Amino acid sequence: MTKAQIDQLLTDMGRHAQEQPRLIETHISWVIAADKHVYKIKKPVHYSFLDFSTLEKRKYYCEQEITLNKRLTENIYIDVLPVSTKSGHYSIGEDEGDIADYAVRMAKVDGNLQMDVLLSNNKVTPENIRKLAEKIANFHKYTTKIYEIDPFELASQFNDLGNEVQFLSTNISAADCAIIEQSIHISDRFIKQNASLLLQRVQNGYIRDCHGDLHTRNIFLLPDPQPFDCIEFNDSFRQIDILNEIAFLCMDLDAADRQDLSDMFVSYYNEISPAMNSIDEQLLFVYYKSYRANVRAKVNSLRAGSTDNEITKKEYLRQTVKYLRLMEHYLRLTA
């Protein structure tokens, strides 16, 4: 669907709603918050790391999103519904009309219970962290082990940030832009120096079919923590080292100036499922945190490049620089 069609869908949904549906846009999706449900429609985009370019692919990845997210959530992900069009109007879940796209239907959960919101209000407790660590550690124990994988693909994923240099070179300082090339060099060296460790972790079953996008905006802190919105669009981003998985959450907590909670999470996690048993593994964990800061920088750069709103663009660029500098900080610790 196009943005104009999404706007028409919002208008049509609003005619039968108690409240006007609210649109939340990301670089790959449109999310519509309605009265009782939330609908997620994938944008018809094709990046180096995902392909939503056809209707068939978007339907497939909607179905994957339901299946994969049900592993860690309860009563949030419901089903996949068609987005139909008839006589110039749009609806979700109707039998009549032509299918314009597909939407993931989810239960509407109070956004104030998202971990990032609670974190900003200083309401994340040690008990929250303990329960979350238990949930993730136990999930990692039983999720599928992945052996047929190239651990060195991580280098190309890290280096994909280089594709943003052309755009960023005219939008941020030269010094901050230079971090990208310098970091790619350090990352390549780290991967080469730790090749045997990376291979060993594959052989020892530490690569699992994980969540893949475990950060504070993707977690509801209900009585039972509910990590949602896992990666469905690229298996290699989800089938990762368990240290890589928890590194994203810990990097996110570090970025929010809550290293105390980050360290607490690792401590609780290790009590249930020891993940760092050597100095080399501890350094690998720090490298994974740099990779996760790299991902955040890339996503914010993509968002900056896709918006026409100058205020929004400046904020995304500010976030890009923040994560570039955090990535650089972590890499220095691995040297």
Rank of each mutant, 00 (worst) to 15 (best):
A133S: 10
A133Q: 05
A133T: 04
E134H: 08
K135L: 13
K135R: 12
K135M: 12
A137M: 08
A137P: 02
N138F: 09
N138G: 06
F139P: 04
F139M: 15
F139S: 15
F139L: 13
F139I: 13
H140Q: 07
H140R: 08
K141W: 00
K141L: 10
Y142T: 15
Y142H: 14
Y142I: 14
Y142M: 15
T143W: 03
T143H: 05
T144N: 11
T144K: 09
K145R: 15
K145C: 13
K145P: 04
K145L: 04
I146H: 03
I146R: 06
Y147E: 09
E148A: 06
D150T: 05
D150L: 04
P151I: 06
P151Y: 00
F152C: 02
L154T: 01
L154Q: 14
L154F: 01
S156E: 09
S156Y: 05
S156I: 11
S156Q: 14
Q157S: 08
Q157T: 15
Q157F: 04
F158Y: 06
F158A: 15
F158N: 13
F158C: 14
F158G: 02
F158R: 07
N159L: 01
N159H: 13
N159Y: 03
L161F: 07
L161R: 05
G162S: 11
G162W: 01
G162Q: 10
G162I: 08
N163I: 10
N163P: 01
N163G: 05
E164T: 12
E164I: 03
V165S: 02
V165I: 11
V165G: 00
Q166D: 07
Q166P: 01
Q166W: 07
F167Y: 08
L168G: 05
L168M: 10
S169K: 15
T170N: 11
N171S: 05
I172T: 06
I172V: 08
I172D: 00
I172E: 06
S173I: 12
S173R: 12
A174K: 14
A174Y: 13
A175R: 12
A175H: 07
